[in-house]
Design a protein around this nucleic acid. Structure first.
Length: 219
DNA sequence: GCGACAG
DNA sequence: ATCTTGTCGC
């Protein structure tokens, strides 16, 4: 027997958990970008009700992907803006569990703190796995964009929590997920941007891998 | 009531 | 996210 999903309860949970995160926000540690090595990229594609969740681990030092895992799961929760984590995280946790290389930083193709209740999927996943995490989204969800010194700063909940980067004529909304400073998150994302690819490498490869696996096994 | 709305 | 016809450009 499974309980029915309640959007109201889910939103309440997000609000409560975000209090923990916002309290720690100013004390999120600086990362030593010289020693950061494994970046995990999470993404999903769908074949009807089947979510093909994948994790790609990119070795920043070697400059290549060292591991990919995937899992196909039937989703139990509909897509509701702001509650995407409840739909996608179960699949991500199962794909993550299959990794033999445990990443230093998580990168998710969605928002982190730039979320109505400061608890986007990147924040949610970072908290659950207790890892630094970065939200990298292609569209705006919730935030105020302020231009300061030619930089597009993302503000939400009275805090500076993200930055909009332009790459290949496209906007990339970077936001703090968990346990990471904005400047480190932006540096890592920029370091992973390449020509002719819209997203940072781990997410670009995760996106392609997810679609390939979905077409091969879940269609 | 109206607009906005990650994937 | 996915579906999906036609069109543009290399």
């Amino acid at each position: 027997m499974v309980g029915l999903f309640s959007a109201e309860v889910a939103r309440r949970l997000q609000s409560r958990l975000s209090m923990i995160v916002l309290e720690e926000l100013d004390d999120f540690p600086s990362l030593d970008l010289e020693t950061i090595r494994f970046i995990a990229g999470f993404d999903s594609s769908y074949a009807g009700n089947i979510q093909c969740a994948v994790v790609v681990v990119y070795d920043l030092q070697a400059g290549r992907v060292v591991e990919k895992t995937h899992v196909g799961v039937s989703v139990k929760v509909p897509y509701i803006p702001g509650l995407l984590a409840f739909r996608e995280i179960p699949g991500y946790m199962r794909a993550y569990g299959k990794l033999s290389v445990k990443p230093d930083v998580l990168m998710i193709d969605e928002h982190g703190l730039a979320h109505p209740r400061a608890f986007g999927i990147a924040t949610h996943l970072g908290l659950i796995l207790n890892k630094p995490s970065i939200g990298v989204a292609k569209k705006h969800l919730h935030s105020e964009i302020v231009t300061v010194d030619n930089r597009k700063i993302v503000k939400a909940h009275g805090r500076i929590i993200g930055e909009v980067i332009e790459h290949e004529k496209q906007k990339i909304y970077v936001s703090i997920g968990y346990k990471i400073k904005l400047e480190d998150a932006v540096k890592i994302v920029k370091k992973l941007l390449v020509e002719n690819k819209k997203l940072p490498i781990p997410l670009q490869i995760a996106d392609e891998y997810s679609k390939t696996i979905k077409n091969k096994y879940y269609k």
